[in-house]
Design a protein around this nucleic acid. Structure first.
Lengths: 225, 225
DNA sequence: TCAAAAGTGTTTGTACTACACCCATGC
DNA sequence: GCATGGGTGTAGTACAAACACTTTTGA
């Protein structure tokens, strides 16, 4: 049965907001376009969805091509439908966001594709297409998500200190949070546990290291900060 | 420029969860299918998205055809991408939900299309396609939305009593809420105002009537119940 | 005058805020 | 021993939960 051959269907693409966190900054992976439209402008990485491909498949394709990364946290954001959003024709874009610890992949080394670059969200160039809207929605979604899902799981190293987690929350929410109240509430939420180790080699007191309790990865809590 | 003609594009449809509230019950508008697949089964109303049509346009088309309603509150829910979700071929479905006061439209009268029916969410037949998932997501979204957006605006009459609003919240959240605390918190949230009238003709004390403050329609608050 | 729903307060406890102090480490 | 960040505790307060009484109406 091929009942749709009579109709002209829109193209469907996925666009990815890949969030990375390193050195206290939240960054997004951007792509330098080589063709028109928006040649030489920075845009979100994206790909057309093949006829028998899921969105997740398409996202995975992008992530492995551009970042060499697999198995990242992925979440659908919103689907953009403005008929004029792509000057080449009708393209519906399904936006996703991904979370990645850039340290785990070949970002600082030279083997990341050279048309790809991390931009801290505070130093973002004006992107092509409607990707500014996608970025804004992604950031708001991340800010909401962090209150009831252990986002740091995906963004930090396996073991991390309380103040690293604290900085991550301050950075994503872009607001100051009292260090001591934060620590208490996070521990009460019961999704991290001490590893027993301490981070060595600092000039100050060696802080305790924590890890996320993986069995609770899908367990929702509620943080009020 | 027609760069997409080489590719086989998936069909794109919108599916609508139309919520209605009347006589203390939350209902959803369902459609009885006349063709295969899922002939004679109940499904959500839906339509294919034309090549130059926005999702909103497609939703409006459905709503005016099936319900004779226009200008309803619409919000995008999620986009479903399972390649097998429609046995006819690849159909990507963008789900929306709408809020409507059924009393304002021709629902009880006979001029509603006879393949269309309101089902209370507690007495829903098992729908065709993946529409059960869509319904579940819609309901959860509505439950979240009601905490920071005046949902009753769209579901209740122009003027309503505090206990009507109270019942609506209890119904949507499906949990008991203390009447007195509810009243206080709603009034403090400052998005409704007394009209000065009272509802007459009841056998008990005549309750005050309220209205939503329309200028605050887009203003988000936060209710904690 | 009775039943049923509407309107108005009060008490109680919890949990968030805003602090201050001590501890460990490298220099 | 001093500077710097890490760890722990506590008092004040605001707000939400639980609950009781009075008022208005029709029958």
């Amino acid at each position: 049965m091929k009942p749709f051959s009579d109709y002209q269907n829109p193209a469907v693409a996925v666009d990815l907001v890949v969030f990375g966190y390193s050195r206290g900054q939240l960054s997004v992976l951007m792509l330098n376009r080589k063709e028109e439209p928006f040649q030489d402008r920075w845009t979100l990485p994206g790909a057309f969805v093949a006829i028998n491909e899921t969105f997740q498949d398409a996202c995975t394709r992008i992530l492995s091509t551009k970042l060499g990364a697999a198995g990242l946290y992925l979440e659908q954001l919103f689907t953009f439908d403005d008929p004029q959003r792509d000057p080449r024709g009708r393209v519906i874009s399904v936006a996703y966001y991904a979370l990645v610890n850039p340290a785990r992949f070949a970002t600082t080394a030279g083997n990341m594709a050279n048309d790809v670059k991390w931009f801290p969200i505070t130093e973002m160039p004006e992107p092509g297409f409607d990707h500014r809207s996608i970025l804004n929605i992604a950031l708001r979604r991340l800010q909401g998500k962090i209150m009831y899902y252990p986002v740091g799981f995906e963004l930090l190293d396996e073991e991390f200190t309380m103040s690293e987690l604290h900085q991550l929350y301050e950075c994503i929410l872009s607001m100051p949070i009292d260090r001591r109240n934060f620590s208490r509430k996070i521990l009460e939420a019961n999704f991290i546990e001490p590893t027993g180790h301490k981070r060595e080699g600092l000039k100050n007191r060696h802080p305790e290291l924590f890890r996320f309790i993986k069995s609770l990865k899908e367990h929702h809590f509620h943080l009020k900060l």
